[in-house]
């Protein structure tokens, strides 16, 4: 227990800020990112797979990505109440701009959430964390070429998902207008 505690504290010192940033980018909410960060480390304390993981940092990053997308899915099932809504994290200064951008980012993050687990992890590391292919390959235990192929396929799939969602939304709007 003491060893695990020490290891987790070291991991927190090394990668805590990165993990928090990643969670903020995936949830667009600092308060939720903080909660998820807490949940992540509680899971790591109790996780047996964490002991077996060759690269604890990579394991923690992957767990954080999965945790964030699980939260997004659960949020869809349990819509937020008004008192739970906070200001989204964004770099745009105007209120309307923030709202529009938050909508857009939500859309793309939900689409990323529909990707399969491994491509999603590779995609997030590449396009949201802006990591190099070699680094991602090392983290995922794959070759650099394989990671490139995964990211490329994930991007194409993401575009398809977005196009499909847009088509579905426009269909609904047309139906509403007809009614």
């Amino acid at each position: 227990m003491q060893d695990r505690q020490k290891e987790l504290l070291e991991l927190l010192d090394r990668s805590g800020a990165n993990l928090y940033t990643l969670l903020t980018r995936l949830t667009l909410r600092e308060d939720i990112a903080e909660e998820l960060m807490q949940e992540l480390f509680i899971k790591l304390i109790n996780s047996r797979s964490f002991d077996k993981a060759g690269n604890p940092e990579a394991y923690a990053h992957r767990a954080a990505i999965n945790l964030a997308f699980d939260w997004r899915r659960s949020r869809k099932r349990n819509p937020l109440r008004l008192d739970q809504i906070r200001e989204p994290a964004s770099n745009d200064s105007s209120a309307l701009g923030k709202l529009v951008q938050a909508e857009e980012l939500d859309e793309i993050l939900n689409a990323i959430g529909q990707l399969k687990k491994v491509p999603r992890e590779a995609f997030v590391m590449r396009y949201i964390q802006q990591e190099s292919y070699d680094y991602i390959a090392e983290q995922l235990g794959k070759t650099s070429h394989h990671v490139r192929a995964l990211c490329s396929r994930a991007l194409n799939h993401l575009r398809e998902i977005l196009a499909h969602n847009r088509h579905r939304c426009s269909g609904k709007e047309t139906q509403n207008v007809k009614k």
Binding site: Y20, T21, T24, R25, L28, E30, A33, A89, S90, N91, Q101, E104, L105, I108, L109, Y127, I128, Q129, Q130
Partner: peptide, 11 residues
Amino acid sequence: RLKVLSQIEPS
């Protein structure tokens, strides 16, 4: 959008 996402930094 991906670029914007990658540029989000918490305080």
